[in-house]
Structures are given as structure tokens and as C-alpha cells.
Amino acid sequence: MSESKLPRILITGATGQVGNKTIEFLKNNNEVEVIAAVRTQDKARQFKRKGIDTVLFDFDDELSHAEALKNVDRVLIVTDYTVDMLRQSKVFLDSAKVAGVKHVVHLGACGPDNTTVAHWAWHQLVEKYIESAGFSFTHLRPETFMQNMLSYGGKQVVKEGIFNQYVENATKSWVDAEDVAQVAALSLLHPDIHSGKTYRMGYDAKSYDDIAEMLTKMIKKPFQYQPQSPDVFLKSMQESGADMAYMHCVYDHYKRYAAGTIPGADEIFDNFPLITGNNPVTWETFIKKHKAEFDY
């Protein structure tokens, strides 16, 4: 039983786009205590300036887990995008079980239960481990983040109106990361409502040509999508020293998007208004919000 009068929520991945926005949604709620899990004191200071409690935590340092999870009731688990997510998640969840955590919200990836896309399946293995451990749970399965068109891997994506991707003319399902964070926050606030639920989140289906056309129309400057072979992506990841176990999976799913062999790649869902009471962000809304970032 938690010693705290209010439920304590630990946010891992607190400096990432979903974790950080989840904290923003929760920070002014007086019915819970929010703790940001961070790796360094420098990152801790960034949150403390905003009045948010922090704890030092590293998925790869299991000795940090017990202190981070002390008196914690609910957790948002956001791992890095590497094959290490499997080990990291298991060890962390084992620690959470010992600590008495009750509800786990897991940020996963796209796909139905029978997905054959490798890194999506890794996330589903984590989901099954959460369930087998006996936690109350909410699984989040976002489709492609709209924010990936702003930056990816720390690099600007659209430069002078030109952008490259690796899926030919495939139509994909998209979601704003802020919408994912809103669902995460509600799932953490109200586990009684969201326990046992798997939320697939994709609310607008567009090809990159569609997006280029919308950008051209709304920003009133020319934008152009120039598709490249997935081999270009693979080579760039190798040269950058990225985790290739994960990047080979990404490479493979780019090839499958391009070939049209991922079932339901453009599937969209109607659950967001039921979960939040709001309408999800569409590409039109997203471009309006981020017009200055796309403009050149």
C-alpha cells in the first residue's frame, strides 16, 4: 500500500515527446503526484524549475529501479527504440511488481495482435509480459507520429520544401504525439476506466505526396516528396552507428510499406472522442500548429 495520500505516477521517457507531454497534461492535476524519471541531474533541474518532482533512473541500471519506484502506484513505460527494450522492460516490470505498482501504461507500436512486423511484435511481447505479471494495464499502439515529419533522429526532415522517405507512394495512418500523450495521461488518471484496454491510435491516413500537396497549399510555398530506396536509409543508419538490430527491422518494414504488404497500414480509428471527449488532430490541424517549423 502506498504511503502517499495521493496516487503516485512515475513517467519514464520523461524528456521524450510523449512522456514530456504526458507530464504537461498531468502536472496541474491535484488528484495525483507526478514524478519524472530522468537520467541526469541536469535533466532533473529542467523539471524542478517547473515544479515537477524527479527521480534519477536508468532502464539499464537496475540498481536505480527500487528508489525510482518507491511508493509508486502507476507507471508510464517508454523504452528506447532498440532491441534492448525487451530486456529493459522485463527487468523494470519485475522491479515494479516487487515495489507494488498496480497500473502500467505501456507505449507500444502499430499493428493488430497478429502483426508480423518485427519491432511492432517486440512491443506486443512486452504487452503480454505486463499482462502475465498481473498488472492492471493500458496498452497504447500509436501509428506513425506526425512529429516525424518535423524531425527524425534529431535531424530536420523537410529542408527548403524537399523531403525524402522510403515507402514509395504508400498511404500511412498518422497520429499527433500530443494526442497519444493525452490518452496516456487519462489512462494514468483513471485506471478504473482504462484498465484492460488496448488503444490503437491513428486518425488521419495520408501519403507523403498528400502531405506535400497540403503543405504547398497551406504554406503557399512549393513542397515536394522525393522517395528514396530503403537501402539509402539502411546505409545512413549503418554510417551513423545506430542500433542495427532495430534499424534492420525498420528497413524491412519500409520495404513492406513500399510494396503494400503491411495489412491495414492506412487504417484509422474512431476511439479518440470516446476516450478524451475531443477530436483528434488531423494533418490540416497539425500543419496549422507547426506552420513556422515547416516554413522556409
Rank of each mutant, 00 (worst) to 15 (best):
Q147I: 06
A185Q: 13
Y257G: 08
Q147N: 07
T115C: 09
D209V: 14
G111F: 13
V126A: 02
H248E: 15
L125M: 11
A68Q: 07
I77W: 00
W283H: 01
Y254V: 04
V183F: 11
N71M: 12
Q88R: 12
T276P: 04
L188F: 02
K159G: 14
A37D: 02
C110V: 12
Q41S: 06
V32H: 08
R8M: 06
H253R: 04
V78D: 08
N148E: 11
I262R: 00
N148R: 10
K291D: 11
C249I: 04
Q182M: 01
D252E: 15
A37H: 10
N20P: 03
G277E: 11
Y208I: 07
K288E: 15
R141D: 05
L186S: 01
D80A: 10
Y251V: 05
T40H: 06
R256I: 02
V232R: 14
G161F: 02
T198C: 09
H123C: 04
V281F: 00
L56Q: 03
W122I: 04
T116W: 12
D84R: 10
T40K: 06
V232K: 12
N71E: 14
A133M: 12
H123T: 05
T15A: 11
L56E: 00
K255R: 15
N20H: 15
K255Y: 10
G100E: 13
N28Y: 05
F25N: 05
F233A: 10
D252T: 09
M218S: 14
Q165C: 08
N30I: 06
K221H: 11
D176F: 09
F57W: 15
H290I: 03
K291M: 13
F163C: 07
E24W: 03
D58S: 11
N279D: 15
D73G: 06
D60A: 05
S207M: 03
E3D: 03
I11S: 06
D204M: 01
D53C: 11
G134Y: 12
A212F: 08
V98C: 07
K217N: 14
I130L: 01
I211W: 00
A181F: 04
M214G: 01
D266A: 15
N30G: 08
A121R: 14
A118I: 09
K50R: 11
E131K: 09
Y152E: 13
T40D: 03
F286H: 04
Q226G: 02
Y203M: 09
K97A: 08
I23M: 07
H248Y: 13
I77M: 15
D60R: 06
K90I: 15
L76P: 00
F145Y: 15
W120D: 05
A44T: 00
L186I: 10
Y246C: 05
D252H: 12
T261I: 06
D210V: 11
Q156I: 12
A259R: 05
L26R: 01
Y246G: 04
L10T: 08
E33M: 14
K221P: 08
L215F: 08
V281C: 15
S132V: 10
F59N: 00
G19R: 05
K217W: 04
Q238V: 12
L56N: 06
Y257I: 04
S89G: 04
N164W: 07
L140N: 05
I275D: 09
L215Q: 01
S236K: 13
